[in-house]
Design a protein around this nucleic acid. Structure first.
Length: 351
DNA sequence: TAGGCCATCTGGTCCT
DNA sequence: AGGACCAGATGGCCTA
């Protein structure tokens, strides 16, 4: 049976399946795994199986005819696609398709679960699959690094770690959702000097985050969706203006919520550059600190900051009064927030 | 309109 | 034989 013939004969089935391609239909189809739309498919399968049994004799007759009319050939017997066999094939294919759909739905469910536990979750605008996986990987690494070092990270390092390898739009998104100005944690790109390289004479590099990822790729584009609830990372303690994380905000957060200049204009071009900055940082870091740990304080300038990455080395002029309260209110996940806060604050308070 | 993302179908391979 | 898993192909939807 050639593919073309098969395709022709299967076209009806394919068309029926394709009808489920609209999101609403898919929804119904997914629900139908345990009933509803699934019953129709079950019925069709049942009918096909009945037809198949009816054709059993016919099939045998056809095979006998084949044996008499044509000379025997060596090698594996290539069965002719009789009507019954075709029916069986269709049933098999439909079952396989259903299994495959369910399998993929399970995979997507797992991915959705993952979306809810990475620090960028929105019910309305989801991260793409690939970005979800990348962010999750970064998040795991960052948290494990905190555990390993036992020290609280500075915000920039943490965000950098989260954004590592993410596409530019997603990186911008993460920054925006954190109400960070990406320019404060992304390397400035100057034609003369690679922004990610330490300046001459810069010996200390306390805020580094030498994350190296195997198979690192330049960020792939992805739509700008999703939000990051900063409460995943920060927690304000009542009675303390900015909580125990105050140092982390220095020079990072944009002052006065509304002052946040959301659309990055022009959009940052960080592909490759951002990623490579980590590589270079990693190389540089190994020179003086084999075991990296987050620095507790980000000085925002001088030798204590990220002079190489963040350009001027001076404190961020935009850094003003911090309003943590203004950070709340994203499309966050309450349960997620609590978990995240518990995890991170345990770390931060202990450090 | 091009490109990204996605769901689905499909055939191949491996395993039970 | 049948199921799980995988990767390629395809077409739909959405956005810049």
């Amino acid at each position: 049976m050639t593919r073309s013939v098969l395709e022709e004969q299967m076209s009806v089935e394919s068309d029926e399946q394709q009808e489920l391609c609209s999101p609403a239909e898919r929804e119904r189809s997914a629900e139908g795994v345990t009933g509803g739309g699934g019953e129709e498919e079950e019925d069709r399968l049942h009918h096909l199986e009945e037809d198949e049994e009816d054709d059993e004799e016919e099939e045998e007759e056809e095979e006998e005819e084949d044996g008499e009319s044509k000379p025997k050939r060596r090698g594996p017997k290539k069965k002719k696609m009789t009507k019954a066999r075709l029916q069986r094939f269709k049933v098999r294919r439909m079952k396989a398709n259903a299994r495959e759909r369910n399998r993929m739905h399970g995979l997507n469910d797992a991915l959705e679960s993952l979306r809810k536990v990475v620090p960028c979750y929105s019910k309305t605008q989801k991260l793409s699959k690939i970005e979800t996986l990348r962010l999750a990987k970064n998040y795991i690494w960052a948290l494990s690094e905190i555990l390993r070092s036992g020290k609280a990270p500075d915000l920039m390092s943490f965000v950098q770690a989260l954004c590592k390898g993410l596409s530019q739009p997603t990186t911008n998104l993460v920054a925006g959702c954190l109400q960070l100005n990406p320019r404060t944690f992304l390397p400035e790109q100057t034609p003369d000097l690679p922004a990610h390289l330490p300046p001459v004479g810069a010996s200390s590099y306390p805020g580094h985050f030498p994350y190296q990822s195997p198979g690192l790729t330049a960020g792939l584009p992805s739509p700008p969706y999703g939000t990051m609830d900063p409460s995943h990372i920060f927690h304000q303690v009542k009675g303390q203006p900015y909580g125990p994380l105050e140092p982390f905000f220095d020079g990072v957060l944009v002052s006065d919520g509304p002052a946040f200049d959301p659309p990055l204009s022009p959009p940052l071009s960080i592909n490759g550059n951002f990623s490579s900055s980590f590589k270079h940082e990693a190389v540089a870091a190994t020179d003086y600190d084999k075991s990296f740990s987050f620095s507790v304080h980000y000085g925002g300038g001088g030798a204590g900051g990220h002079p190489a990455i963040y350009g001027s080395g001076g404190s961020n002029p935009r850094c003003g009064d911090l309003q943590v309260d203004g950070l709340m209110g994203f499309d966050g996940h309450s349960h997620h927030e609590r978990l995240m806060n518990a995890q991170l604050n345990a770390i931060f308070h202990d450090s």
